[in-house]
């Protein structure tokens, strides 16, 4: 369905743009030199690094589990998930607790990131669809879009996609 206008006199007959769909608040964080954003509604908590209990015999990028106020949740090393080097645990390292729906279930998981930046309000005009690197080269299914702010480029993540099981299994087989 075509949307109506903005305040300009142009009548847009185009469908809702990616920007309009994705505009909103994002929590941004860094993995190495790259910056990513998470929809703020999916972020439940940000906690300092705590002891992570290793769970043997699971995928490499699952660092282990932690005790979050009485609930046991898994922690994913996002760097490893994206094929980068393992996160070096340092003072700035932080665990972002995210909550999202996978199928019918509500999942709670932690992701290990190098550094948390800020909560950023990104407007529709500053968001573009994800870049197309050509089929089969890099899997960018889990990027919702690319946001720009102050000359920074922020990759907006579909965290549900990133952490859902089926892809995870595929990744693990090659080892």
């Amino acid at each position: 369905m075509s949307t109506a206008t903005q305040s300009s006199t142009q009548i847009s007959t185009a469908p809702i743009t990616v920007g309009q769909r994705l505009a909103g608040k994002y929590m941004t964080f860094k993995l190495a030199a790259e910056e990513y954003g998470l929809e703020i509604l999916k972020v439940r908590d940000v906690i300092g690094l705590m002891e992570i209990t290793r769970v043997p015999k699971t995928m490499e990028f699952i660092r282990g589990v932690i005790n979050l106020r009485g609930k046991v949740i898994p922690v994913v090393d996002l760097r490893l998930k994206f094929g980068m080097e393992e996160t070096a645990l340092g003072e700035q390292t932080v665990i972002i607790v995210v909550q999202f729906a996978s199928g019918e279930r509500e999942m709670t998981m932690g992701i290990l990131v190098d550094e948390v930046q800020e909560v950023l309000d990104i407007a529709a005009a500053e968001i573009e669809p994800p870049p197309d690197f050509g089929a089969g080269s890099i899997d960018t299914d889990f990027i919702l879009g690319v946001g720009k702010s102050d000359r920074r480029v922020i990759f907006l993540l579909d965290i549900g996609r990133v952490l859902s099981a089926p892809e995870v299994l595929q990744v693990s087989a090659a080892h």
Binding site: E51, T53, V55, V65, G70, V72, I73, P74, V168
Partner: peptide, 27 residues
Amino acid sequence: IKGLGEGLPGTRYLSGAAILSDGRVGL
């Protein structure tokens, strides 16, 4: 006993997790 956290595949030898007296997780 606490569940082992949803979305953790391949944990055959573990039947769950528990929170120990010092707050850490024991499998």
